[in-house]
Simulated scan of single mutants.
Amino acid sequence: MPIGKIHVFDLDGGENWPAYVRLVEQFILLNDIKDNLRVATLVTHVGAPTYRLMCDLSAPDNPENKTFTALVELVKNHLEPKRSEIAERHVFRQRRQGEGESINVFLQKLKHLATYCNFGDQLEVNLRDQFVSGLRSEEIRSRLFAETTLDYKKAVGLALALEAAEQHAAKAVAPAALWAAAGPAGLQADAGERVHRVSVAKQASAAGRDDGPPRRDGCWRCGREGHAPHRCRYKSYVCEKCKIKGHLKSVCDKKNVNVCRSGLKYQNFIETDSSESGSEEFQGLYVIEGETVQNVKDGPYYCELIVENQKVLFEIDTGSKISAVTQ
C-alpha cells in the first residue's frame, strides 16, 4: 500500500504546476518508485482534464511515450509561458502592503511575486528592500531605517515584533477610549440606574454664567502657544486671582469660580489628561476643593451655591463619610 496521497491537479483553478510536480516527486521518493514508473505515477494522479491536455500537447504521440522530465516541461510551457523578467520585477517593485493586510500576508505575496523575477543569490536583498519600502506603517518603517545593519531576517523579525506591539497597545487603549467617550453616563449603578452626565452649557446656564472656560488657540493654562495644556509648566501653579491650581492669573476667568458658604471653591470643569491625544475635555462636573466642610452630628455635608441668582443648599455626595487615606 502506497504511503501518502496525491490530489488531482486543479487545471481550471490555476494551481501551480511546478509545485504539484514537486509533490509528485516526493511521493515517488517516499514510496521508492522505480524510474520506469515515474511517468505512470504522474499520469494516473493528475486527473482526467490534465491528462487530456497532456494528450493534446503530445500529439501525435502519447504522454506515456515521453520521459518524465519532457512531459513535465511540456505542460509547464503551456500553462506558464516564459514571462518577461523586466515586467515581473516591475510588478514586484510596485507591491505595497494593503489596508488591513497583515505583515505576514504582505510578505507571503511579496515572495510569490519574486518567484519569476530571477533574482538568484540576490533574492533576500531584494525582498528586504521591497519589504521595508512597502510597509504601510510609517512608524515601523522609520524604526527599520534606524538600523545600521539590517538583513532580511532581522527586518522581518523586527517588523513583526513592532506590529504585535502596536496591536497590544491598541487593545490596551481601547477601554480607556471607550471610557472617555462614554464618560460617567456610560456607567450603570448596581441598582440599574443610569448615571446621567450634565453638559457644561446647562450647568453654566443654571448658574447664570458663560459657557465654561473660553477656548483659546494656545494653552489655556498660560495663554502661550506651542504646547498642549497637559504639558504646560504651570499645570500645578496656583492662580493668584481665584486661588485655584492649574493656570496663571493672566488667563483666569473669575466667573468660573464661586465660593460656598463653607469657604469651599469649585470649578465647572475637570481635566481629562490624555497622553495619547494630548486633549483635555471640559465635562461640566464640579470639583470641590478648599477648607473642611462642616456637618452636624455626623450628618450629610452641605454647600450653598448660587443658581440663577438664588442661594440653594446642596448636599455633597462624598461617597463615604470618612477617608482613611492621607492627602
Rank of each mutant, 00 (worst) to 15 (best):
L42S: 01
D317L: 07
A228C: 08
E280I: 11
D273T: 01
Y286H: 12
V24G: 14
C55F: 13
S205I: 15
E280L: 11
E315W: 03
L113I: 03
C232I: 07
S137I: 04
L127P: 09
L160C: 15
D273M: 02
E315C: 09
R194V: 07
R83M: 07
K153G: 06
C303I: 10
K245Y: 13
Q108V: 13
H78L: 05
H90T: 10
K109C: 11
F92M: 12
W179S: 00
A165Y: 01
A204I: 10
V8N: 07
R93I: 06
L160E: 11
K311D: 06
L110K: 02
H227L: 06
N16V: 09
V307W: 06
D273E: 11
V132M: 03
L110M: 03
Q97C: 04
L23Y: 12
R52Q: 15
G246P: 14
V259Q: 08
A155H: 00
A48I: 11
T67F: 03
H7L: 12
A189I: 01
E281I: 03
R197F: 01
K311G: 05
V257Q: 03
L107T: 07
N104P: 08
L305F: 14
F282Y: 13
V156G: 02
H7Q: 08
I322L: 07
C260L: 04
V200F: 07
Q122L: 11
G263T: 11
I322D: 05
S84Q: 00
T41R: 01
I140M: 13
N295W: 15
A146D: 00
Q122Y: 12
F145E: 11
D298R: 08
A176Q: 13
S142Q: 14
M1A: 15
A176Y: 09
R231C: 07
E281S: 01
V293W: 05
C55T: 15
S277D: 03
E138I: 13
V312L: 06
I306D: 13
L285P: 09
R136D: 06
T292G: 02
L264T: 10
K235S: 12
